[in-house]
Amino acid sequence: MRLLILVNSIDCIDENHALLSNAFRRVGYEVILGEINAISANDYRYLTRGVLVPRNSEPLHPGAAVVGTRETYFLDECQLVWVMALPQEHVARDVWQMLWLASLHTPFVNSIEGLVFMNTKHSLGYVLPKENRAFSYISSDFSLLWERYQQSSDQWWVAKPPNSAYGLNVFLLPPNGPNVRTILQCLTGNAVTQDEIGWAGAGGFKPEYAILQQFIPEVAKGEKRVVVACGKVVAWHGRHAHPDDHRSNISQGGKSIAVDLHSNEIRLAELIGQKLMAHGISFVGIDIAYPYVIELNLASPGGLYDAAAAFGIDHSDQVVELIIAHFKKRRSL
Rank of each mutant, 00 (worst) to 15 (best):
M1E: 03
R2Q: 12
I10H: 06
I10A: 01
R26A: 09
E30Y: 00
E35R: 12
I36C: 01
Y46S: 00
L47K: 00
L47F: 01
T48S: 11
N56W: 03
S57P: 08
G63D: 09
V67Q: 15
D76F: 01
Q79V: 05
Q88P: 00
A92N: 02
M98L: 03
L99G: 00
W100R: 15
G114C: 12
G125H: 10
P129E: 12
K130L: 15
K130N: 12
N132M: 06
S136N: 07
S139D: 03
L144C: 04
L145Y: 07
W146M: 07
A159I: 10
N163D: 15
S164Q: 12
Y166L: 14
L168C: 09
F171W: 07
L172W: 08
P175T: 05
N179L: 10
V180E: 11
V180I: 15
I183R: 08
L184E: 04
L184D: 05
N190K: 05
W199N: 15
A200F: 09
K206D: 10
A210M: 08
A210P: 11
Q214M: 14
F215L: 12
P217Y: 06
V219N: 10
K221D: 08
G222R: 10
K224I: 08
R225W: 05
V227Q: 06
G238M: 12
G238D: 04
H240Q: 14
A241V: 07
A241R: 15
S256A: 14
D260T: 15
R267C: 14
L271M: 11
G273F: 05
I281N: 01
S282E: 01
I288C: 04
L296W: 06
L298Y: 00
S300K: 03
G303E: 04
D306I: 09
H315P: 01
S316I: 02
Q318V: 11
E321V: 06
I323G: 02
L333D: 10
